[in-house]
């Protein structure tokens, strides 16, 4: 085997080694954030399947577009993608709800659209018995916040992002983050006080 062939062979092995290392590194990173990311999406959507879809979209995009970036950048990148996917879902859902309520009011104007709307948090009595009431109350309280307040609150409180980092992820000003966060805390205090 010539020196050139050996060098090519060595470079190939090195490349494969780097790819494996990179895959392992990405796997470790995703494993470290997957549960929290899923819960964030679940709280925002109030639906397990939608949350898993959002998580999948965010993970796939990170792997496809940003896997070759420095692993230190993955955290903020993934959070930005995830929040963006949640926002997209929220917008689509708003439009769907508007159409649904419009059609249902056309079909039968006697019916109350609120009564007719699908309860995404509905569970069987068995599930309700098993569920942790405290977590459910918290989920419901955060879920009922406007999306921007949800994002500001969870990123600041749970993810431990600074105001600047949160503003960068949410693509808004620092002032907006402070306002959304403050309103979220105020509302949560009111809603949860009786239960906690």
């Amino acid at each position: 085997m010539s020196i050139h062939d050996e060098a090519t062979h060595f470079n190939g092995k090195l490349q494969r080694g780097r790819t494996l290392e990179s895959r392992r590194e990405l796997d470790v990173f995703l494993a470290s954030i997957e549960k929290r990311a899923y819960r964030m999406a679940e709280i925002a959507t109030g639906n397990k399947d939608d949350a898993l879809d959002i998580l999948q979209d965010a993970m796939f995009k990170l792997a496809e577009k940003y896997a070759d970036r420095d692993s230190k950048e993955w955290g903020p990148l993934f959070t930005t993608i995830l929040q963006s996917r949640i926002k997209d879902w929220y917008r689509r859902n708003q439009v769907r709800k508007r159409f649904r309520s419009w059609f249902s009011s056309k079909d039968n104007e006697q019916d109350d659209p609120i009564q007719q709307a699908e309860d995404e948090k509905a569970r069987t009595p068995e599930q309700l018995l098993q569920a942790d009431r405290r977590v459910d109350k918290l989920d419901q309280a955060i879920h009922n916040l406007p999306l921007r307040q949800q994002q500001a609150f969870l990123l600041r409180t749970w993810e431990g992002y600074s105001v600047e980092e949160t503003a960068s992820v949410m693509k808004c000003s620092v002032g907006s983050v402070k306002t959304h966060y403050s309103r979220a805390v105020h509302t949560l205090r009111e809603k949860l006080d009786e239960h906690w």
Partner: peptide
Amino acid sequence: SVDTLDANTLSRIRQIRARAVDKT
């Protein structure tokens, strides 16, 4: 709440992660 996720959800999350890593 993260620590008490049910087995089915955890399994689906792991499958998603594995597919995402394959995407690289």
